[in-house]
Design a protein around this nucleic acid. Structure first.
Length: 424
DNA sequence: TCTGGGGTCCTAGGACCC
DNA sequence: TCTGGGGTCCTAGGACCC
């Protein structure tokens, strides 16, 4: 058996924990650059505010209904997430951190327990430790646990915990679930399935396996197997090493000059370097993309992207920033109003020599110098101690391109100065 | 005026090998 | 008219997830 624990309206709930005045008030959280609505409290959902709506399209409702609106505060959400996960890790021996607000728990070996009761205990404990409300779905496969969790969220009858244990319970749950709401079935596949009159999860489970394999490919066949109680997706206890790391942002205003864009690009490359070092990985390739707005009818869209091989596998900020800059020189077009840029590092491998492909002549294997390693370590150490950006390279600078972020809540769990602010 | 960011996996098709 | 058989590797693009 698998349990899926999923936080309710996670970002909105995080904002509420340290601001009780928001209870019973509609709350929404915006994407980076304050563009779209990406999280809503139940009250906000009840107002008909849809996921992903651009803010300027629903500004009136937000104002009229006195909705509390927040810029996204990833320092807060990330820290709250790790508190939730730590609590869950104390409640089951094996746990998979699936996303910022979800975890799978391996419930095999809990045979002696009343699983519904145990689900309730999980809810109570997480709420007590973190203030975050969660729902729990428990079932024989991960895909069914997802469905159980969805039911627990939707219907108050479950009181936050839904256990699918018998064939009868599974059958009922599947017939109540639209096929587009099945984990792994997105928009395109739903369209295909509806056209074949496969409307519910139950229909998909009963569809001819050969047809599913042919048209939904191996991933769809797996979904079908999981729906019929055959577990194909095991708990992944260790997160697999990342294959690529991306840092990108939309800009608060159009960026037109090379200098401004360069500061943005250098900042993104520098952030990728920090993430690489945190991941204990080195990268061999770097991609830069810069682009104008896809929504602007006045000017033709420009979307430039280029990849370069780094001189050797590296995690050095300066090397990555230099590489990004060399690509910017190639991609930059004068006269464009840039709205977005980003840096991707790829072809990652572990920083320690073990596990890495070495050259036949290992003696002259080029790598980050000892000096660079020391410098990066000192930089990371200072920033760890005194806060992100306490020391940085001169080109990492937000002048001229900063994203909008007008409604940021305090970082109550990660910054002393912000706690003082709340205390008032 | 204003429209997110960060990932993974799979397939088809082309280029190449003998 | 008709033109082999069996592979690998890489990439772009599409699908999905949160």
């Amino acid at each position: 058996m698998f349990a899926l624990v999923d936080c309710n309206n996670f970002y909105a709930s995080c904002e509420r924990v340290f601001n009780p005045a928001l209870r019973n008030r509609p709350v929404v959280v915006l994407s980076n650059n304050d563009g779209c609505i990406i999280a809503r409290s139940e009250e906000a959902k009840a107002l008909g505010i849809k996921m992903g709506t651009p803010m300027f399209k629903c500004r009136d409702v937000l104002l009229q209904q006195k909705v509390a609106v927040f810029s996204s505060n990833y320092s807060l959400y990330g820290d709250m997430s790790s508190r939730v996960m730590t609590t869950l890790a104390g409640l089951a021996p094996d746990i998979e951190l699936y996303s910022i607000d979800e975890a799978f728990l391996d419930m095999s070996g809990f045979g002696r327990y009343d699983l519904t009761e145990y689900g309730r205990l999980i809810r109570r404990t997480v709420h007590q430790h973190t203030g975050i409300p969660v729902c729990v779905g428990i079932a024989p496969t991960k895909t069914l646990a997802k469905i159980a969790n969805r039911l627990a969220k939707k219907s108050p009858d479950y009181q936050g915990v839904c256990l699918l244990n018998s064939d009868e319970e599974v059958r009922r749950a599947l017939s109540m679930t639209k096929v587009e709401d099945v984990w792994g079935i997105g928009r395109q596949l739903s369209k295909l399935l509806y056209a074949r009159n496969i409307n519910t999860a139950a229909d998909l489970a009963a569809a001819p396996a050969t047809w599913v394999r042919k048209h939904l490919h191996i991933t769809g066949a797996r979904v079908q197997a999981e729906l019929t109680g055959h577990s194909c997706l095991p708990i992944e206890l260790v997160r697999p090493a990342k294959q690529g790391i991306c840092t990108s942002r939309s800009f608060g205003q159009s960026v037109k000059t090379w200098d401004d864009l360069h500061r943005a690009v250098a900042t993104f490359a520098g952030k990728c370097a920090v993430k690489l070092r945190k991941e204990q990985a080195v990268a061999l390739m770097l991609t830069l993309f810069i682009g104008t707005s896809p929504f602007d009818d006045q000017q033709a869209r420009y979307w430039g992207t280029k990849t370069i091989a780094l001189p050797y596998p590296t995690q050095d900020s300066m090397t990555l920033i230099r590489a990004a800059q060399s690509l910017l020189d190639l991609l930059f077009r004068r006269g464009c109003a840039y709205r977005k840029a980003g840096v991707i590092v790829s072809e990652l491998s572990p920083v320690e020599l073990a596990g890495r492909t070495l050259s036949l002549f290992a003696d002259d294997e080029p790598a980050d110098s000892e000096q660079s390693k020391k410098l990066m370590k000192v930089m990371d150490g200072i920033n760890e101690l005194y806060g992100r950006g306490a020391v940085r390279l001169a080109s990492e600078n937000s002048v001229g391109w900063k994203p909008n972020q007008e409604r940021l809540s305090p970082c109550c769990t990660t910054r002393w100065s912000d706690i003082m602010e709340v205390k008032g």
